[in-house]
Amino acid sequence: MLGFIYTFKVFDIVYVMTGVGPINSTEVLSTLAFRYSFTDFQFNLGAATANILFVILLLISLVYLRMIKKDEVI
């Protein structure tokens, strides 16, 4: 579960290794938010994408914490 959470925040590896790849084939939400904000200068779309990424990670983290809490009680 933690590995799944960590894959969402991968930005540097994708950006440095592929530069978002040919025809945006390796684009993830973090690189999409970066492209919207700093390449296309559409700050509203960049902020919205970053907020969507935050909400997804928050929900996954809450599920993970509930799973851990169940294990501690038993």
Rank of each mutant, 00 (worst) to 15 (best):
L59H: 02
D40A: 08
F4L: 06
S25Q: 11
L53V: 02
E27S: 04
T49M: 13
E72V: 04
N24H: 13
N44Y: 06
F8E: 06
L45W: 00
I52E: 15
G21F: 14
L62G: 05
G19E: 03
T49S: 14
S37F: 06
D71C: 07
I52G: 14
G21Y: 13
M1A: 13
Y36T: 04
G19T: 01
I68H: 05
K69F: 11
K70Y: 12
K69R: 09
S30M: 04
V73R: 12
V28F: 15
K9D: 10
L58Q: 01
T26M: 14
F54L: 13
Y64G: 03
I52F: 13
I74C: 10
V14A: 09
N24I: 02
T26K: 11
P22I: 15
D12I: 06
F4V: 01
M67P: 01
L65P: 00
F34G: 04
F4T: 01
I60L: 15
E72I: 02
I13V: 01
G46Y: 01
M17V: 15
V73G: 09
L58N: 01
N51C: 14
K9I: 05
L59W: 01
T31A: 10
V20Y: 09
D71Q: 09
N44H: 04
Y6R: 02
L65K: 07
F38V: 03
L57D: 05
I56A: 13
D71I: 02
I74P: 06
M17I: 14
R66V: 03
I60N: 14
I5W: 00
F43T: 06
S25P: 04
E72G: 00
I13M: 04
M1S: 10
M17C: 14
A47L: 09
T31D: 07
T7E: 05
G3D: 02
L59S: 11
V28G: 15
D40L: 12
S30I: 04
A50T: 03
F34Y: 11
Q42N: 15
F41L: 10
V63K: 14
Y64C: 09
D71V: 02
I23G: 03
E27N: 04
G3Y: 00
I5H: 01
N24K: 11
V20S: 13
T7P: 00
T7I: 02
F54D: 10
N44C: 05
K70I: 05
Q42E: 15
A33L: 09
T49G: 08
D40T: 05
F8I: 01
V10C: 08
L57W: 00
V16K: 07
V28W: 07
G46E: 05
I74D: 12
V63E: 15
M1G: 05
N24A: 11
V20D: 09
G21P: 10
I5L: 08
F34V: 01
S37G: 12
I23S: 12
I56Y: 07
I23E: 11
L53H: 13
L59E: 02
S37L: 11
L2A: 07
I68A: 08
S61L: 13
I60W: 08
L59Q: 07
V63T: 12
M1R: 08
F8H: 05
